[in-house]
Structure formats: structure tokens, C-alpha cells
Design a protein around this nucleic acid. Sequence first.
DNA 1: AAGAGCCGCAACCGCCAGCTT
DNA 2: TAAGCTGGCGGTTGCGGCTCT
Length: 282
Amino acid sequence: MGRAPCCDKTKVKRGPWSLEEDNILKDYVHTKGTGGNWISLPQKAGLNRCGKSCRLRWLNYLRPDIKHGGFTEEEDHVILKLYSQLGSRWSVIASQLPGRTDNDIKNYWNTKLKRKLLARGGAKVPKIPTPTSMVPINFSNPNSFALNAMDFGLKTSVSAFNQVQANYYGNSAYPLKHASDTSFLPNSLDVIQGYPEVSLNSTDWLYESLIDNFPLPGLTDFQENGGPFDGFVSTTTSSSQEISGLSHSSSLAGSYGNSWSANGIGEQMGIFVKVESESSNY
DNA sequence: AAGAGCCGCAACCGCCAGCTT
DNA sequence: TAAGCTGGCGGTTGCGGCTCT
């Protein structure tokens, strides 16, 4: 037996919202709030609409803090960076862009940004799967950390990323050696699009895999030539969840790479590690 | 000028997780 | 503990406007 629909679709209005409907919804939410129940809201407000439709209209269009208009270069970079790390988790990406909705970003990605990326390099944009679970990863030593995840018989994948971020990884931590030279900075868009996911064996060490499998432009040069190089290790908790039965509480994934900067623009390159469950052993 | 094709985006659909009963 | 309900989310659709021929 299927789920009961949230409303009778034959009795509610569908399609584009009229100005009058917008005003009714806006007035109602402003004066009475949603009451934590969108399903009953249309009836109370006098709207012949499905509650879900009202919610969507409010969240994606009528909210006062919505930012309308084109995306900036800076927003592009944030979207690219987060997409490379998280995949199509639009709501998480939207949470990092004030005033933008997940729907906005999804549309922008599908209609413009993806095309822009492909036009610049012709390579495929990696489709990064959403991890289904996570285990702790030890990032304590960036040159030799192992993936404890292997012990759990999980599939681990890594993907390459780089990003440009002004004043994010502080210059003081990564001193400039070529303050006037930005030529060494690889193009973020060129790097982000091309790298396939690589499955690691249980005996692999991530650092070795990085060198062997991810010939990131510029990265090994910096290591060999002693450029303005320093490693960074970070984890993200943006989508963490615990595996039932394990006491660990750790991040879904982590990243490792290099960071440098010039002219106030910081650049990071590295790999992003994700751990996925392949079995239901726990 | 008109028809075809393309593009952008609002809206819908269906699934899932979490909360309540 | 199970069932039902709702909000949240990502994928997809379809309409309207714009551009091209």
C-alpha cells in the first residue's frame, strides 16, 4: 500500500502562483507564522493550495531574506568547492550561501555552472556519490595517516579538489614566498573537474595514493621544488552521522592537501576522502 | 514576421527521516 | 514498537520567454 497523498490534488490549485496568492501567504506567515504545520496552513490562510506547495513557495521565493539575481564569482567558487566535496547536497551548499536556496543553487548548477565547467576543460564533472555512513579517519599525521575505515570492510573513495579562497587559510600559517607571482596557482576549475574516484586497498596509505593516483598539477612540483608549500589536514562535520553500534562520533569525511597563497588569495589542492558502507554488517 | 528550438527557473513529485501518537 | 504524519530534500518536469533561422 502506498503512502497517502498530503492533499487531494484534484481539489487544490496547482501551477504558478498569482500575486494575490503570494500576498495572502506572505500576510499570513508574517502575522501568524507557520505554526509549525504547513499542511493545515493553506486552509487557515484561505488558500486553495497544497501545504507543501505553500512551504515551497515561501522558502524558495517569498521569504524576505531571499537574494534574487545572478551569482557572483565568489559564490561560484563556494559552490564548486562544496560540490567537489559533497556532491549534490544542495541544502548543505545553500547553508553556506546566505540568501540562496537549495533550489536556486541546483538550478544554477544544472543550467549554467556545470556547462561553464565543461566548456573550460571538456572533462567530465565527477559525480560524487552521497556516502551512506562514516567511520573515524585518523588525520593526525598528514604524511602517513592510514584509513581506519578499512578495518570495517568499507569502500573508501577519494576525489581531488582544489579551491581558491581569499583569507581563509591564513597567510601567516603559510608564509608567502612568491607574493607577486600568481602563475603557480593552478586554475581551480581545471583541477576540480577531472579526477576519477579511486578505491583504495586496505594496505594503502593515503599519502602514497595521493602521489601515485593524483598527479595534481603543481602539487608535486611544490613538494619537489620546495615552493611555498605546507600541508593542511581537515575534517568536515557538515554531514556527520554515527553508525549504530559504534561509539565513535567523527566526521563523514576528511581532506588532505596543500595550501599556499599569493596576493591575498589562498589556494588549496588536495584530496577529499569519503567512506561508504558496502555491506550491512552492522 | 513567424515558427522552431533553447534556456531558465518555478513548481511538482516521490522518497526518506524524524517526530508523535 | 509500529504506524501515521509532516518537513525536508534531490531529481525532474513543463511553461514562458528569448534567440535563432
